[in-house]
Nucleic acid binder design. Structure first.
Length: 262
DNA sequence: AAAACAGACAACCGCAGCATT
DNA sequence: GAATGCTGCGGTTGTCTGTTT
């Protein structure tokens, strides 16, 4: 038995939004806040699918959006985060205030991909193009999951608890950059500090229980976070507000840190 | 000037996970 | 535990605009 459609397609508009529709949506969300997307169109007097409303708001109407060209700094961050996270656009967007996952995805596909290719870097593997083929089979980012314990999107990138804002996941869900041997081709040290988008940001974390693997992975962090030292046996976050486990990746809204505890 | 092409980006679609019933 | 509903994500498509021929 299939699911019912998210909306009555026969009675919904599709395609480009009109100014009037935008204004209705803005007015409604200003008055009632986000959420309840399914019932929103009817309440707001819009002949649109709830999904469409949500997308329009998130990608275009949100007041905190930063429109305009990406800076060089943002380019660098996107490339570095993509090398770490793969096509987790929403997660990457969480590190770029004012940018949406859709915007970053489009930008990646239209600009950065080309830029990397032209500079001889494989945009999927982030390695020199001539060596990309050799490691293709190790790269799970945009292909089928590994045979053992395939990654689960939700498990990998589950939303934060609003109090603590951290999550942890199993090793099998770590992005390939963390799973595969890191031989230094990719600089995982992110040295550009940025505030996270508190409201829209989702945090991700990865867990690795393999000590051998752990040693092959770069430790990295976001500036601004207070990093004391890898906790010896404690399960506490270095910012002392989280419960990260050793061997896990995670980023934290409390301190803006993205960590891996080796 | 018009057609063809390419680039950019907004929007849609299908899927998956979680929550609720 | 199964069915259903809601939400969010990533991939893909459609359309608009600018450039080239």
């Amino acid at each position: 038995m299939g699911r019912s459609p998210c909306c009555e397609k026969a009675h919904t508009n599709k395609g480009a939004w009109t100014k009037d529709e935008d204004q209705r949506l803005i007015n409604y969300i200003r008055a009632h806040g986000e959420g309840n997307w399914r019932s929103l169109p009817k309440s707001a007097g819009l002949l649109r699918c709830g999904k469409s409303c949500r997308l329009r708001w998130i990608n275009y109407l949100r007041p905190d959006l930063k429109r305009g060209n990406f800076s060089e700094e943002e380019d660098e961050i996107i490339i570095k985060l993509h090398s770490l996270l793969g096509n987790r656009w929403s997660l990457i967007a969480g590190r770029l205030p004012g940018r949406t996952d859709n915007e970053i995805k489009n930008y990646w596909n239209t600009h950065i991909k080309r830029k990397l290719i032209s500079s001889g870097v494989d945009p999927q593997t982030h390695r020199p193009l001539n060596s990309a083929a050799a490691i293709t089979q190790l790269d799970f980012r945009n292909s089928a999951p590994p045979p053992v314990a395939p990654p689960s999107k939700e498990n990998s990138w589950s939303a934060h608890d609003t109090n603590c804002n951290s999550t942890t996941t199993e090793e099998s869900q770590a992005p390939p950059q963390q799973r595969e041997e890191s031989d230094g081709d990719v600089d995982l040290e992110l040295s550009i500090g940025l505030p996270s988008q508190a409201k829209y940001m989702k945090s991700a974390s990865f867990n690795s229980s393999s000590s051998a693997e752990s040693k092959s992975i770069h430790n990295f962090l976001w500036p601004g976070a207070e990093v004391v030292a890898p906790p010896p046996s404690s399960s506490m976050c270095v910012c002392r507000t989280l419960g990260f486990q050793k061997g896990q990746f995670g980023n934290c809204q409390c301190c803006n840190g993205l960590y891996r505890y080796l």
